[in-house]
Amino acid sequence: MSLANAQGSSTTVTKTPPAPQAAASQPAPQGALRPSIGQDAIPAEDAAPVEEIVPPKMDEGASWQVAVEASKGPTPLIGQQQADAVDKINAYFNGVTSLEGNFQQTDSSNKRSNGRFYVLRPGKIRFDYAPPNPLRIIADGHSLAIEDKSLKTVEKYPIKSTPFRLLLAKNVDLGRDAKIVGVERDNNVLAITLEDRKGTAGHIKLSFDSGSQLELREWTITDAQGLTTRVTVDNLVRGRKKSSRFFKSDDVPSSPFQGMGG
């Protein structure tokens, strides 16, 4: 029934069936976008024609490239690009005999520590924490010791059960010894995320400056509970070797920062 008839008094209205093939639709508002129109439907007289826009076809590789360029953040590397990046990272570690520098550590509770670290490949690494952190961490090639000078305790673990096993091996081959979760590039930063093939829970993400030459920048270790520890490094020096004795754990730990507070 029409709106005018519906507003009158109680008047009997005779409903006339619509004529065959007649359209009984309301006009579309001016400028409104209408749904797709069936073949037999009659468009409203005041509706502007809608031009269908068909996006150009792209092959799969071009589509992937466009999506990567349009997205913000790191670019994942796949195929040969990933293989070349892994080879470059392997060559970096295999080219390092000795390395030392400063480190800054942030744990899962956002607690910050700093100190100095030393590497002697294969198998040896040492972290001297500055006060008030009482820890020192030393790997002698066989075990990794965590010394607490305030508690006068030493805890030891097989180095093969730690993520450092992957990086301190005599011959670093991450494709052989680790499960590569992903490799990505963001401007001049190259990053790789690894899981240990031997079943050690958690994973480690290594980041490198990849300008004229590769240089370690930071790593983040995520344990089985999902807790993360991030370590950034700077002022790196190669070739300044320490003796093997420097990487031996003490039964009664002491700090090389003794006398500096803490």
Rank of each mutant, 00 (worst) to 15 (best):
E147N: 09
P158D: 02
R245Y: 08
T220F: 05
P163Y: 13
S71L: 14
S9E: 14
A224V: 15
V172C: 00
D186N: 14
L227Y: 06
Q7F: 13
G182I: 05
R245F: 04
I37R: 04
G261M: 12
T200H: 07
V252I: 07
N90D: 15
K241Q: 10
T200L: 14
L151N: 10
E51A: 06
R34A: 02
Q82S: 09
I89V: 13
D40G: 07
Q225N: 08
A139E: 07
R217F: 01
G199H: 10
A47N: 11
E51W: 06
A130K: 10
G95R: 12
L174T: 00
P49K: 12
E52V: 12
D40L: 13
I204H: 02
D177Q: 07
P131Y: 12
V183I: 00
D128T: 03
S36T: 14
N171E: 12
G175F: 08
S243Y: 06
P131W: 14
T12C: 09
P43V: 07
V237Y: 07
Q81P: 06
Q225T: 08
K152Q: 11
Q30T: 07
A145E: 05
T228C: 01
W219S: 01
P134I: 06
D186K: 15
Q105M: 03
P20D: 12
S2F: 00
I204T: 14
S109Q: 11
R240S: 09
A23E: 15
K88D: 00
S36L: 15
L174S: 08
Q82D: 05
P29R: 13
D173M: 05
L190P: 06
T75W: 11
T229H: 01
T222I: 09
